[in-house]
């Protein structure tokens, strides 16, 4: 980091929708904006044509991200970003299709779509902003709310177990899986870039702060305190492999977690079409 990447700080501005009102609707310090910046710098580095990028989302604070972007964007219904994105990808297989989703959007109401997108290994990049809670609707528990954590639907502590989105994606068949945090922003930018370049379903889970609900209810403090805690609790994959389960308690592993080059859905579908329909 110290060797300042000579990267212009203003590239993000090129990709903002000219007619949108800024600043965004998000609470001051919300990690969603940090993810947006890293995502746009990753796109810029890859030099994609704006007209060849579609960004799709469902509903949630995190899902409001695409509405600020000057690409093709679809702001759809809660949990259904992946089915809409699948439709876009099928109609335009050459297009870069990205889904921005939250933990509730992707894993609760959209959980079924999520596992089947992974299973098909369709060439979509999903950026899952995991803030452990439903931000937009007032702090209800989500499938990633940790055991014992407080939310407005678990006021005495969550009795459930939580999903690990990365493990779930690997188990369901995704071919690129990575985890980042809003503290480790340059790494997040690099991982998003790798995910975009990967052919197949790629997931980048980004651990983010909803200080307004998760932070406040669980006494984790302001955005600064929450983001600094991500630094303290993140463990690089190589180091995690040498740690015991006991040492890893309360920590999470960051970096590229899984990669394989299995066949991709659009390619396989085209093979079926070529073999049977078009002569």
């Amino acid at each position: 980091m110290a060797t300042a990447e000579k990267q212009k700080s203003d590239v993000v501005l090129k990709y903002l929708r000219p007619k949108k009102k800024f600043p965004s609707v998000w609470c001051p310090g919300c990690g969603n904006g940090i993810v947006m910046g890293a995502f746009l710098r990753a796109i810029d580095k890859l030099g994609y044509d704006k007209d060849n990028v579609a960004v799709v989302s469902g509903i949630g604070c995190s899902s409001r991200l695409p509405i600020y972007l000057d690409f093709h964007t679809l702001h759809t219904t809660h949990g259904r970003a992946l089915p809409f994105a699948t439709g876009v990808k099928f109609a335009r297989p050459g297009m870069k299709v990205i889904v921005i989703t939250g933990d509730g959007d992707a894993l609760a109401i959209g959980g079924n779509h999520f596992i089947h997108a992974c299973r098909r290994n369709i060439d979509i990049t999903a950026i899952l902003i995991n803030n452990y809670i439903y931000g937009m609707t007032g702090g209800q528990g989500s499938p990633t709310t940790p055991s014992a954590a407080i939310s407005t639907t678990t006021p005495y502590g969550n009795a459930e177990k939580h999903f690990d989105p990365c493990d779930l994606a690997i188990g369901a068949g995704a071919s690129f899986v990575a985890r980042a945090t809003v503290y480790h922003t340059p790494q997040m930018e690099r991982l998003i870039g790798e995910a975009l370049e990967h052919r197949g379903f790629s997931l980048v889970e980004v651990i983010s702060n909803c200080h307004t609900y998760f932070g406040r209810l669980n006494r984790q403090g302001d955005p600064v305190a929450m983001i600094k805690a991500f630094k303290d609790n993140a463990v690089a994959k190589a180091r995690a492999e040498k740690m015991t389960a006991e040492e890893l308690k309360g920590k999470f592993v960051i970096g590229g977690l899984y990669r394989s080059d299995k066949t991709e859905f659009c390619d396989e579908y085209q093979k079926v079409v070529d073999a049977h329909l078009v002569k």
Partner: peptide, 18 residues
């Protein structure tokens, strides 16, 4: 070092270092 502007959630900081 870029830390301030990569973490600004509102793109309110730009650097004069090119």
């Amino acid at each position: 070092c870029t830390i301030c502007w990569v973490h600004c959630p509102d793109f309110a900081i730009t650097s004069n270092y090119k």
